[in-house]
Simulated assay, not measured.
Amino acid sequence: MNHKDTLTYERYLPWKRWVEAGFWVAVTAANCVANSLTTLMELRRGDSGIQAWEPVVWETSSALVWLLVLIPAIVAYTRWRPLHWENWRTRLGEYAVASLVVCLVHVVGMVALRVLAYRMQGMAYDFGPWPRELAYEYLKDARSFATIVVVVEGYRFLLRRWQGEASLLAEPDEGLPLEPVDQPERFLVRKLGREFLVAANDIEWLQAAGNYVNLRVRGHDYPLRSTIAGIEARLDPRRFTRIHRSYIVSLDQVASIEPLDTGDARVHMKDGSALPCSRRHRQDLRQRTGADAC
Rank of each mutant, 00 (worst) to 15 (best):
P180R: 03
L67R: 01
T39R: 14
L113N: 10
K4S: 12
Q283I: 12
P259E: 01
Q207V: 01
R143W: 14
R216Y: 13
E232G: 10
H281K: 12
M269A: 02
L113F: 05
T241N: 09
E171H: 14
H244Y: 13
N2L: 04
L92M: 11
Y12C: 00
D264H: 07
E133S: 07
T262L: 14
I203W: 08
S278V: 03
L68V: 11
L251E: 01
F127V: 01
V101N: 06
G175M: 03
A73Q: 05
L83M: 10
S273W: 03
Q287V: 07
A26C: 01
Q183S: 10
L176A: 15
V198Q: 02
E232I: 06
W162L: 12
L251D: 00
R114A: 03
K270H: 09
R279W: 11
Y9P: 12
Y9F: 02
T6R: 07
G154D: 13
S278M: 05
A142E: 09
R91E: 15
L206A: 06
D5E: 15
L37I: 09
Y136C: 01
R44Y: 13
V65W: 02
L275K: 12
M110V: 04
G230K: 09
I228P: 08
R245L: 03
D264P: 08
L113A: 04
V111E: 11
V69P: 02
G193S: 03
P177S: 04
A229N: 14
W15A: 14
A291M: 14
I74V: 11
A26Q: 13
R245I: 02
D182L: 13
A170C: 03
A30E: 01
R81N: 15
R45N: 06
M110F: 11
E20K: 10
V217G: 01
Y222E: 10
W53C: 00
T241S: 13
R242G: 04
R44G: 00
G164M: 01
R266D: 06
W80Q: 09
R216P: 02
S167M: 08
C294P: 09
I243V: 07
N87Y: 05
P72S: 00
V27C: 03
V151S: 04
Y12M: 05
L285N: 02
P55K: 05
P82D: 06
H268Q: 07
I243E: 01
A76V: 03
V217D: 00
G154L: 14
S278L: 02
R239F: 08
N31H: 14
L7C: 06
Q207C: 11
E137T: 13
R218Q: 11
A76P: 03
I74R: 08
D284F: 12
D252H: 08
P129E: 06
E153F: 09
H220Y: 10
Q163T: 00
G290C: 03
G122K: 15
A112F: 04
E195N: 01
W15P: 10
L197K: 12
R160D: 04
G164S: 00
G109S: 02
A209N: 10
W88K: 09
A255F: 13
A229H: 15
S256G: 13
G154S: 05
W18A: 15
Q253W: 10
F127R: 04
G219L: 01
E20R: 14
N31R: 14
H106Q: 15
E171R: 10
